[in-house]
């Protein structure tokens, strides 16, 4: 198996990897390990002292849970069943405000400055004059298999395509309208590099001989789009470690 970095977005949150010489079963195992096994922080318990905003406590608690929090996997660990929660497991957020307008994630005070909302502008609720809100929320590490709020990323993969573009002038005129407009460059010709997403690849397949697409069965483009809690690199490393631990478990059972 051969893994290389194919593309990285400017914000560093999306990484495209090229994985060659493997099977769909392996890349899917990796995808599922990322979705289900990589721990991240999310708010789990909320205690409301006061809330007379229009949204009910339950709705606000749910909205709080969905706020992605920057996650430090080294300083914290997951709570084991039967263990007493302590400083190594959780971070507390508190908020007390009467400010009119949007109450945002960045208004919350965290007990640890390294675990804070990734996007401080995410809206919790909206207050009108005379309305106020006060709560304390506890964030813990959790896994995507427990609730999707703990999912670290959006992950998908597709077979690596081999794209051949002929740009034959006659054929180009005849079939131009059958191709998606995004794939034409400024001079009106098809640019191979613009056929870059799985949707565009599918749309260009089998239309005419202008674009020929061949898919390699043992080669994959693997996309990790992080929601911000961890970097794509951290996510992959942690997923591989979790997968390794699972294999160890199975090996142990076989003895």
């Amino acid at each position: 198996m051969d893994v290389s970095l194919f593309e990285k977005s400017k914000d560093g949150l999306t990484a495209k990897l090229l994985i060659r010489g493997t099977t769909p079963a392996f890349v899917n195992a990796l995808r599922r390990a990322i979705l289900e096994e990589v721990p991240t922080f999310a708010i789990e318990d909320v205690e409301f002292r006061k809330n007379n905003s229009i949204l009910y406590d339950e709705i606000i608690a749910h909205r709080l849970g969905l706020i992605p929090l920057k996650t430090d996997l080294k300083g914290y660990r997951m709570l084991k069943p039967g263990e007493e929660p302590g400083k190594a497991h959780q971070v507390t957020f508190s908020l007390k405000t009467t400010k009119q307008g949007n109450v945002v994630a960045g208004d919350m005070d965290s007990t640890d400055k390294s675990v804070v909302p990734v996007y401080p502008d995410m809206v919790i609720t909206k207050l009108l004059k005379g309305q106020n809100i006060e709560f304390e929320a506890v964030a813990v590490l959790g896994k995507g298999k427990g609730h999707s709020k703990w999912c670290p990323a959006h992950v998908y993969y597709y077979n690596e395509p081999k794209i051949t573009v002929t740009n034959d002038p006659k054929l180009l005129e005849e079939t131009r309208s059958k191709y998606p407009p995004q794939i034409f460059d400024a001079s009106g010709k098809i640019d191979k590099a613009l056929i870059s997403t799985p949707q565009l690849i599918d749309a260009c397949e089998g239309v005419s001989k202008l674009v020929e697409i061949e898919r390699k069965d043992d080669s994959f483009v693997f996309v990790v789009e992080s929601w911000g809690q961890l970097t794509p690199k951290q996510i992959l490393v942690e997923a591989v470690e979790q997968l390794d631990a699972q294999f160890e478990d199975v090996a142990g059972l076989m003895k």
């Binding site: 706020i67 994630a105 401080p120 809206v123 999912c151 959006h154």
Partner: peptide, 17 residues
């Protein structure tokens, strides 16, 4: 009512936008 925190389908955080 109020803008959802995340996209319903893919889960991308959107309410700050």
């Amino acid at each position: 009512m109020i803008i959802p925190q995340r996209c319903w389908s893919c889960g991308k955080p959107i309410s700050h936008l």
